[in-house]
Simulated scan of single mutants.
Amino acid sequence: MEWAMLLGMMAVTFGIRYLPFALADRLRLNPWVERALSYAPMAVLSAIIAPAVLAPKGELWLDWRNPYLIAAAAAIVVAALTRNLLATIAAGMGLFALWRFWL
């Protein structure tokens, strides 16, 4: 009985996730909908990253002693100057580690 339930849940989950990809080339959206959907990845990443950087302990922490905030600011500057993903990650993670060790 459990196997049948697991297979049914698998089929439903796969169907829900696969159908939009399978039909994507046949479906045409309005240009304004496509333009609006192009901002979805940035919005999702901002919604994940902003609370972790600005309130890592559950409260707003806008202070120079916040290693998350300092590392994120440095990563933004490096990304804007170099446009290099590896340099951005290295600068952010390196400064975060130094800031945590220093404080």
Rank of each mutant, 00 (worst) to 15 (best):
Lys57His: 14
Ser46Ala: 14
Arg28Ser: 10
Glu59Phe: 07
Ala11Pro: 00
Asn30Asp: 13
Arg35Thr: 13
Arg100Val: 15
Met10Gly: 12
Asp63Trp: 06
Ala50Cys: 14
Leu27His: 10
Met10Tyr: 09
Arg26Phe: 14
Met5Gln: 00
Ala4Thr: 01
Pro56Trp: 03
Trp3His: 00
Ser46Trp: 12
Ile76Trp: 14
Pro67Trp: 09
Tyr68Phe: 15
Val78Met: 06
Pro41Asn: 03
Leu81Trp: 04
Met1Gln: 01
Leu85His: 07
Ile49Val: 15
Leu98Gly: 07
Gly15Ala: 14
Tyr18Lys: 11
Met1Cys: 00
Ala72Phe: 15
Leu62Arg: 12
Leu98Phe: 14
Ala50Pro: 07
Ala4Trp: 00
Pro41Trp: 04
Leu98Ile: 14
Asn84Val: 03
Lys57Val: 05
Asn30Cys: 02
Lys57Ala: 11
Arg26Asn: 14
Pro20Asp: 07
Pro31Ser: 11
Ala74His: 03
Leu86Glu: 09
Ile49Gly: 04
Asp63Tyr: 03
Val53Tyr: 10
Ala97Val: 15
Arg28Lys: 14
Ser46Phe: 14
Trp102Met: 14
Ala40Gly: 00
Leu103Met: 10
Val44Trp: 04
Glu2Ile: 01
Trp99Glu: 08
Ala55Trp: 03
Leu23Pro: 05
Thr88Arg: 05
Asn30Gln: 07
Tyr18Met: 13
Gly58Ala: 07
Leu54Thr: 09
Met5Leu: 04
Leu98Pro: 02
Ile76Ala: 15
Asp25Phe: 11
Leu29Ile: 04
Ala75Tyr: 10
Leu23Asn: 11
Arg83Asp: 13
Ala90Gly: 06
Leu37Trp: 03
Pro41Glu: 03
Leu103Phe: 05
Phe21Cys: 04
Pro67Lys: 12
Leu23His: 12
Arg26Lys: 13
Gly8Glu: 04
Gly58His: 09
Thr82Arg: 11
Arg26Met: 11
Ala73Arg: 01
Met93Ala: 15
Met9Trp: 02
Trp99Tyr: 08
Val53Met: 05
Trp3Gly: 00
Thr13Ile: 06
Gly58Tyr: 10
Pro20Leu: 08
Ala11Phe: 07
Val77Lys: 07
Ala50Phe: 14
Ala55Thr: 12
Ala11Leu: 13
Ala79Trp: 11
Met1His: 01
Leu45His: 07
Ala36Leu: 08
Leu86Phe: 08
Ala50Leu: 15
